[in-house]
Structure formats: C-alpha cells, structure tokens
Amino acid sequence: MNKEKDIRILAFESSCDETSTSVVKNGSEIESLVVATQIKSHARFGGVVPEVASRHHIEVITQITKEALAEAKVTWDDIDAIAVTHGPGLVGALLIGINAAKAASMATGLPLIGVDHIMGHITAAQLVDKIEYPAMALQVSGGHTEIVLMKDPTHFEIVGDTRDDAAGEAYDKIGRVLGVNYPAGKTIDQWAHQGKDTFNFPRAMIDEDNYDFSFSGLKSAFINTCHHADQIGEKLDKYDLAASFQAAVVDVLAAKTIRAIKQYQPKTFIMGGGVAANLGLRERMDQEIAALANPPKVILPPLKLCGDNAAMIGAAAYNQYLEGDFADLRLDADPSMELPYAADYK
C-alpha cells in the first residue's frame, strides 16, 4: 500500500442540521474535519425546521470548504476526488452539499462521488480500525434504526429495520414530555444512569422471529403513564422514568442485534449513528458481545464520528473510488434513499 499514491477525498455532508467538510486520506485517515452545527437554532423550535436548516447550510458552505483544505494543509491540487451525501435526508439541505460538490467538481475537474448517508455513518468505523468482512452494523439515530449486513465495502443490506419511529426520535418525543430540550438523548441517558427500571415499559417485538423494531408503543406507554400521573396529581421520579424508558430501548436493540450476530457470524461489529453515543447502549452491547462464544471485533466510533460529519462520507467515498463508482453533474438529492433489504429479510 505504501508504494501506491495516496488518495485524498474532500467530502461534503449537509443532510440535516450539520454542515460539514473533511479531507480524508486513503479512506481511513482524517486530515481535517469541520462541523458547523445548527443545534442552537433548531432548539428554538423543538426540532429541525427544514427551511431553516437549508438557510444555515448555504451561509457557511464556502467558508468551511476553505477551512477543510487549510486544516489539512493541502490545496485543491492535492485532492483526488470530491464526495457528497446525496441521500437520505432533508431535500433542501442535501441540495446545498450536492450543488457545492458539483460546482467544486466543475471548477477543479475532479471526479464526483455520491455517497449514501447511512453507508457513510457505518463506514465511519473505517476511520477507527480496519473493517473485516462480512461485517454487521447497528445504525441508530434520530432517523434510522437498522441492522445492516455488510458483505464487502460497498454492498450493504438491511436485515432489521424499525416499523415506525426511529430510536432517537422516541428519545426526542419522550424528552418533550419530561421538559428536556431537543435533542434529548444525552440528558435522558444521564438521568437513566441515576434511576431504576421501575415502570416495566413494553419491549415491543423482542420475541418475534425477525430483526425488526418498533418504538411507537413504548413512546405511547411512556406518555400515557406521565399523563395518568398528572391527572391524579402524582409526581413521578424523572430518573426512574428515564431509566425505565432507556432499559426498554436498550433491551430490544441488544437482544435483536445479538441474535443477528449469532445468525450471520460477522467478523466485525459496528455501532453507528447519534444514538450510538448513548452510554447505556454502549455498555450493554460491550457486555453482551464479550459474552459470545465467537465474538466479532467491535468498532465503536468516537462520539465526534457518531453524529453527522463529512469524514464518514470521505471514508465511504474512498471505497467507491476504488471501484470507479463516480457520479456526473446531474447528481440529484434522493431524500428517501434506502439501502436494499437482504434476500432473507423477514
């Protein structure tokens, strides 16, 4: 590998409420990573407002492109390709990164690579350690809850998916009931560590013979419990509520994921997405995997790489670069892009 030329990719990510640019070398080494987050703006509204997100993306896009190059101490002459998330995500938000990347490609003559946001999240693991295939990933965020089987660096399939709310979405919704500001995951996680699982909320689909999830029933049970207590003037312990909610989420995620690992026997297990930053989930998965007879190598990307960032897009783009998988100037946003389902998906 040392004899070959280094491949540097400049990547853009703007699918939701973070605008990010990064220079990644050989798909594994972050030379720069700039993330401009809009959390403070959307906190005003209790959730991401798409038009506001798009407006913030265009404010910073040229500035953070220059910063990514400067931080990596490179110029456009050192870059080999330009990559961008083209879905899934908010269409207006995706279009900023896409049009920026296409303009950069026209201006520099560099090839363009369109990257699936979810493949990016999972491939963030490549920035931490070498992924051995087949690999399996649990991808949990505000928009997704999926178990993904990775046959090789560019062929990913869904073996388990949420039937309704994403896990992160459920955190934000019950957070609202507890008066926790968006995004609620971090606070709920902290409270959960100070309370006990006393409410026994439902573990939906935990015994079903598939790898799918459902969190809307849990959310409703939680909200009903709080409303009922309000009506009879009873005050519930917020730490116990958080601990009970989190235990229900973690139980189902862990049970289904461990069963999938037992069936598919991956060589590497990866946890990605914003909810992968959840300490309760991390601790539980560590424990359960260590107890397996034939445990896969585990890669838990650091917190900075769990949220939306362009370095993960640069990592995934490198795998596509090696296969010559390039896009042209007609590249468009695909807001509801989905990975394919596995042939044996139930």
């Binding site: 038009e51 798009s54 407006r55 265009i58 896009i61 040229t62 492109t65 220059k66 456009w76 269409v91 207006g92 279009l95 900023i96 049009n99 920026a100 296409k102 303009a103 950069a104 026209m106 201006a107 520099t108």
Partner: peptide
C-alpha cells in the same frame, strides 16, 4: 423560490470562491 435561489447561489459562490 427559496430552494431555487440556493441552487444558483451555492453554485455561483463555490465557483467564485474556488477560482
């Protein structure tokens, strides 16, 4: 059109900035 304006301006400002 808000989205339309951003498509044009993102393209124009990236071209101007890079070149």
């Amino acid at each position: 059109s808000y989205t339309g304006l951003r498509v044009g301006l993102t393209t124009a400002k990236m071209l101007a900035s890079i070149l």
